[in-house]
Design a protein around this nucleic acid. Sequence first.
DNA 1: GTCTATATGAGGATAGAC
DNA 2: GTCTATCCTCATATAGAC
Lengths: 205, 205
Amino acid sequence: MPENTTIHKRTGTKQKILKISSTLFSEYGYKGTSVRKIASQVGIRESAIYNHYKSKEEIFLEVAKDIFSSPFSLEQDEIRESAMKGKTFLHKFAMQYKLLTFDKRNEKMFRILLIELLQNKVLREQFMSDFHDKNVKILSEGFFIMMQNSLIRSGDPMIISYEFLSTLFYIRLQVTLLRFDSLSTNSLSTQFEKHVDFFWESIKI
Amino acid sequence: MPENTTIHKRTGTKQKILKISSTLFSEYGYKGTSVRKIASQVGIRESAIYNHYKSKEEIFLEVAKDIFSSPFSLEQDEIRESAMKGKTFLHKFAMQYKLLTFDKRNEKMFRILLIELLQNKVLREQFMSDFHDKNVKILSEGFFIMMQNSLIRSGDPMIISYEFLSTLFYIRLQVTLLRFDSLSTNSLSTQFEKHVDFFWESIKI
DNA sequence: GTCTATATGAGGATAGAC
DNA sequence: GTCTATCCTCATATAGAC
């Protein structure tokens, strides 16, 4: 496929623009990132940028697409299966969350989300649906199964999910802030695990 | 005190600048708020602003001073006293938190905090110390007393505090986002109370 | 303390040669 | 696809008259 190869070479700059832009956006935000700065880091002139994207906003939208694309999901089967084991389910979920928190690419996207959350309505909506609702839904299914099997005390699965998720988010926020300043996250390194332990003791029968 | 009165009249514009600036900052962030916009809403020319503040940054710093000034604290005595009653302590704390969440002035400041959190190192540090450490400390004292009185199961008071606080923060975040878009917060209106209920069931003996 | 006028610069974007 | 040159707008900030 020589054609494919050619295409890849042709889009090399485009990819580079995207990569560098995402880093700058995650550091300085949308307004704090100028097309000039992007171009200079890519190694081309500002005007050349416009051969690939028609505006700065188009670049941002392209970058923003990736914010919620993290392949974070327990498969349906996996939920049912591990929910039977109770704590294992919580542990798996939290460890996935921890992985995302420390993963460089996801960290970058999470920063952009935080920086632009109040400046961008679409991001807020996606935050609510993808970060919150989606996870509450997954967790609820797990907790529901656990209740049916008398592994945990009864209650509203949605409330329990909310409680479990909120702490995960808070840990992630704190880790992200510390890492933003290149500070040690030692004090939080086992916080995810501690959360699972505490939470399981809270709900198990 | 005619002198005092005079001073107040003289600082009328200055106060107006501060108030309008804080609203604009809480809506559009630091970069998104121009001195032009501030001046126009105050009803004077840009240049006149500089009679009161030497730069836009100075205005922001003045505004930012108020972010962490919320008179949020249970008095030492109150902690000891209500901690003896267990759940009452949690309830009081959560209701104070809820009050701040829905208070217009504190909401404005919380927005600024969110918008500028990743752009301003001082804010990050204050967030960690004032929003997190300070509250964890207050809560820990309460939980410690409860443990001593065998009201709750034993464990690390810091961990329990972390768990309790993180959910409060998350609710506040969600409420703030919804209100930013003038959306209903009905679904979250009793979330603070539900949190207290759930949490107390989780730790009580 | 506020105004007009102006300096100075940053940033987004386009035209046209190569 | 990239370059040089250029335009336009918006933003911070200052000088000096009233």
